Simulated assay, not measured.
Amino acid sequence: MKRLCLLRHAKSDWGDPSKDDFDRPLNTRGEKAAAFMAGWIARSPYRPDLILCSTAVRALATCAPLRDALGDSVPVIYRDELYHAMPDEMLEEIRNAPDDAKTLLVVAHNPGLVLLAMALAEDPDDETALRVAYGVPTGGFIVFEFDADRWEQVANAKGRTVFFGRPRDLMADVSGEKR
Rank of each mutant, 00 (worst) to 15 (best):
M86Q: 13
A69S: 01
A33F: 07
R29D: 02
P45S: 10
C63Y: 08
A59N: 08
D88L: 08
D80G: 07
D88T: 13
P65H: 07
A33S: 10
M37E: 05
D68M: 00
I77K: 06
P98T: 12
D68S: 03
G30L: 04
T28V: 14
Y83T: 13
W40N: 05
A97R: 00
G30N: 11
L60Y: 11
G30H: 00
N96A: 06
D100L: 00
A69N: 10
V57F: 02
I51A: 05
P25E: 10
H84Q: 15
M37T: 10
T62A: 00
V76P: 11
D21S: 11
L91C: 05
L70M: 05
P87N: 06
S54G: 00
K32Y: 12
G71K: 03
L26G: 02
G71P: 04
M86E: 12
F22I: 09
R79C: 12
V106H: 00
W40H: 13
V106Q: 01
A38Q: 02
D72E: 15
A56H: 06
E92Y: 08
E92H: 09
P48E: 11
A59T: 14
P75T: 03
I41M: 06
L60T: 13
A56W: 10
L70V: 09
K32M: 10
L91T: 14
W40L: 06
A64W: 12
P75R: 08
A101N: 08
I94S: 05
M37D: 11
D88Y: 02
A61Y: 11
P48L: 07
A34V: 06
E89Y: 01
L105C: 07
K102M: 12
A59M: 03
T28N: 07
F36Q: 07
P75G: 00
S54F: 06
P25V: 12
A85H: 10
I94V: 14
T62Y: 01
D99E: 06
A108Y: 05
P65R: 05
Y46H: 14
R47W: 11
L82P: 12
A85K: 02
T28Y: 09
V57E: 10
R58T: 10
D80P: 01
E93N: 04
A85I: 12
R95K: 07
L104W: 04
M90D: 11
P25S: 03
Y78M: 09
D21R: 01
D21E: 13
G39M: 01
T28L: 14
L104N: 05
R95M: 07
A61S: 13
R58D: 12
L105T: 08
A108G: 00
M90F: 04
D100T: 01
Y46M: 01
K102G: 14
R67T: 15
R67Q: 15
F22A: 04
D23G: 04
V57L: 09
N96I: 03
G39C: 12
P87G: 08
L82Q: 04
E92D: 13
D72Q: 09
P98M: 11
V57W: 06
R24E: 02
A85S: 11
A34H: 05
M90V: 15
T103P: 07
S73R: 15
P87T: 11
P25M: 08
